[in-house]
Design a protein around this nucleic acid. Structure first.
Lengths: 247, 247
DNA sequence: CGACTAATTGATACACTTCAAATTCCGTGG
DNA sequence: CCACGGAATTTGAAGTGTATCAATTAGTCG
């Protein structure tokens, strides 16, 4: 179950998530300190990174890949409660374990910090605590946004909402066939989408087919999605006019 | 729309939320500083404390009463995304407004801090930032817990979950007729419960009636609830055995 | 006591689930 | 390169839980 531990990763200064992760505000001195307590771990797609309620001896950031935060009931009903993309933080300073399973959806590389030294450093380094607070507040907003999706949206709106979110932060929008269009790959199986949306996988499949029939999206294979008109998709998601961003 | 501003409230040292609010870790010196930038505001039941996306010039803590965080779609569908009890924090340092409506459900007294000075003080006072991080992480856990309720639980389980949560933190459990039993008043209308649970008010009403018929709860009037066997209620909520606590 | 709002209850409709089968996708080995 | 096999996905048919629409009843405040 243990992932390989790599000590000779990239240095912080050329880390791809240097400016968005928990270390974003650190200056060079502080980075140097972090270097001392950090190590890299790799996980293969499907591997569990953290089991719920297990003791965690580290915290860390997703460097590459995608992971999910998942909660399950005894009878097997499962709800995804978070999607972890590069730069997102895993673990909770001040607590021993995660109440959720953390599972690698693709191959994942994590930048880990031993927990005690990291907590120690948080006390002494306001830049880290500040950034972590900011990130946590953002996650809280995202979680609440998602509560509206889960509680009040129809299946079709749920799918459109999920596609919007993925489209918005997928960095592949350069190859768009024309302005306003967006292209991306789904990082999730139908089942994972269902667990995120509080639906069954059959319903997910049906609604994706319906959106395709209606021309809101186009599919090549099962995973590659083209959105010809982002505004249309946002409209289907039921959010106000343009959701604040467009591209 | 402006609530009365009271300057001569209780001093921090005999504040009822002194040890649970954002100021919990402050020492006497720090409290003295806070005193200088704090003021009290009162709101009547039903009043809106903050309108979504309006500029907020303060942050603060609920001292007494109950408020809700609410998100709405254009067509009127509404989802409650948070329940604010005494000691809970309102507002986001570093942001101008709240993305949610904050509404007083009962009469509410808030301890407010002018935003700029508070943000300033956060920089200088690790005790405040630390406590705020801790509270935000707790809220994030609660929000994720609620995502499971919204996404995967049945109407009956949703009601039982809500009653469990209210019962757990209502401080009135002394008058329980016998050990294991719990008595409390519902602080929410059926409609507010529906908005919290992602249901209609009719479904809420039906499920409460069903739980009453089945002896899981007893009602006097519409608001006063007796839970003869807390374990039974937790069971109906679908949570594992005893949910970690039992009184 | 009467008017207004909150809550209950009933009947029907429909969105989503469930159970089942067919099809497509995709890596593996011949 | 193509054929094979298992998993992922799609599609179909029927069932069910919750929403919707519509009265009725209970509770509350003037």
């Amino acid at each position: 179950m243990d992932a390989p531990v790599l000590n000779n990763g990239p240095t912080c200064s050329d880390c791809p998530i240097r400016h968005r992760a928990v270390c974003a505000r650190c200056d060079v001195d502080e980075l140097e300190q972090l270097e001392k307590i950090k190590y890299y771990r790799s996980f293969e797609a499907g591997q569990t990174i953290v089991w719920s309620d297990d003791k965690m001896d580290f915290v860390g950031s997703v460097v590459t890949g995608i992971a999910t935060l998942t909660q399950a009931m005894e009878d097997g009903r499962t709800q995804m409660v978070g999607l972890l993309l590069p730069s997102d933080f895993v673990g909770r300073p001040g607590r021993d374990g995660s109440p959720y399973d953390v599972v690698a959806t693709s191959d994942v590389v994590m930048c880990c910090f031993r927990k005690r030294p990291f907590e120690q450093m948080m006390q002494e380094t306001p830049h880290i605590a500040q950034r972590l607070l900011e990130m946590t507040l953002d996650e809280l907003d995202a979680a609440r946004e998602w509560m509206l999706v889960l509680g009040r949206k129809t299946a079709r709106e749920k799918i459109a909402s999920l596609l919007s979110i993925i489209a918005r932060r997928d960095p592949q929008q350069m190859n768009a066939p024309r302005p306003g269009a967006v292209v991306f790959d789904l990082p999730l199986t139908r089942e994972a989408m269902a667990d995120y949306l509080g639906l069954t996988l059959e319903t997910v499949s049906r609604q994706i087919s319906a959106l395709r029939r209606d021309g809101v999206i186009a599919l090549e294979g099962k995973r590659h999605v083209t959105v010809p008109d982002m505004r249309r998709l946002l409209d289907e998601a039921g959010d106000d006019s343009d959701g604040g961003h467009l591209n």
